[in-house]
Design a protein around this nucleic acid. Structure first.
Lengths: 224, 224
DNA sequence: GTTGCTGCTTGATTTGGATCAACACTCGTT
DNA sequence: AACGAGTGTTGATCCAAATCAAGCAGCAAC
């Protein structure tokens, strides 16, 4: 995979002028990461911005053990943890490769220099940060919801794209990790699925079948 | 209060060139808001960026009733909800004036135009968004912590600035609202303070006295 | 086949916080 | 001083999820 094409695959970066993309590509490097190993740890100095080109990543907050919980799942095209790199502050999370992964590492120094000199790049970063902010805010709202079933229902809805009424959702990783992401134990997740069976949710392996999206939406809304 | 001086009071905006600040000031307007009334509601279209010049604001997520919880408290110098304005999307929260408040309203159109044409402004917005992202992330981490006492302890620590070992924290608003912010009921907050008395925490009115910051830190870490 | 091993489910029990309800305290008003 | 109204504390009960503890596939290695 060419570095320049990798840069172009990052969300929003496609609109950047050729010259800027080339500058980004020139300074950065591609790297393969084995499934299960970690890209960086919480508290480390932010030397790079990481962009996922292929595969999936999980972001863990709190300390390294399981209790902290998973903040988010990232997939292809997502750039991670721009803020620490931009502000030259330590990472606030630990990233782990859920699958085998191809990442583009952009040196923080170069990243900052571009963000402060190239208007087109600054604009793209603004949009990206703004979108990330919204996602995070949504998560925060989710997290404050006490009810387990509701959280699961909403999670499923967030992973259904399009206007269909019957859909299958592919869980991003093991149930254990999904549970952590939703702020609950694997046992509770299991029971939640059990209860949602009446609402037309069937789970086989890492595939979840949603019979009626609209019905699921009702559950997600009630006792908000 | 002059509009230009108001602009200069917004965090980070001080470094902007005089001309840019004048452009911001020219298009925007100052407004007084009475304590208790709301600046905008969740779901409304983002026509303005709001900057708090004097007073304090609370951001409510979820629907208007109490259950949703308070996402954050904002004080003088904070600009709120830049992302929706930048992306031209609806607000994701409701803002309420905790005290009498003076806000600067910057039209979203003008804001976007500046962010896409003035490099200096784009840079400032980048930094601001990055910092907001970090704050939000910290919140998310907080929220996932189940233990009430721990959340309260961490909240207190976050509101202590400097290297002192004895400090007094002034609660941003009524206990009811602080409780909502921490994702718990007023009753639980009360009991949490009660339990923390053994750790040298005394609360009189809206002032909380922390006898030993280091001891409090220990509580915040344990059972993280 | 059998032996582990890992990941998921199910059951029994415990627990922390929410909820319901009563009471105490501070203000501002008459 | 007496009276509300609003706000914080305390107590009793209830409930959802965590925890503890088995069971049960699927699967690799032998």
């Amino acid at each position: 995979m060419d570095k320049l094409t990798a840069v172009s695959k990052i969300k929003g970066f496609g609109v950047l002028p050729e010259t800027v993309r080339q500058r980004i590509a020139a300074g950065s490097g591609l790297q393969h990461i084995d499934r299960g190993s970690s890209l960086f740890r919480e508290g480390e100095r932010a030397h790079f911005v990481y962009a996922v080109i292929e595969g999936a990543i999980s972001l863990h907050a709190g300390q390294d053990n399981a209790s902290g919980g998973i903040a988010d799942f990232l997939g292809a095209g997502d750039a991670i943890l721009i803020p620490p790199a931009l502000l030259d502050l330590p990472y606030m999370a630990t990233a782990r490769a859920v699958t085998d992964v191809l990442v583009l590492l952009i040196p923080a120094v170069e990243f900052r220099r571009l963000a402060e000199s190239e208007l087109s790049f600054a604009i793209v970063i603004n949009r990206t940060l703004a979108m990330h902010w919204r996602l995070l805010f949504k998560q925060l709202r989710q997290a404050k919801t006490r009810d387990a079933d509701t959280r699961v229902a909403r999670f499923l809805l967030d992973n259904i794209h399009g206007e269909v009424n019957t859909a299958t959702v592919l869980l991003p990783s093991s149930r254990r990790q999904v549970a952590a992401h939703l702020g609950m134990t694997p046992e509770t997740l299991s029971r939640a699925f059990r209860r949602l069976r009446d609402a037309g949710i069937t789970s086989r392996g890492s595939e979840v079948l949603v019979k009626s999206v609209s019905q699921l939406a009702v559950i997600a809304r009630r006792s908000n």
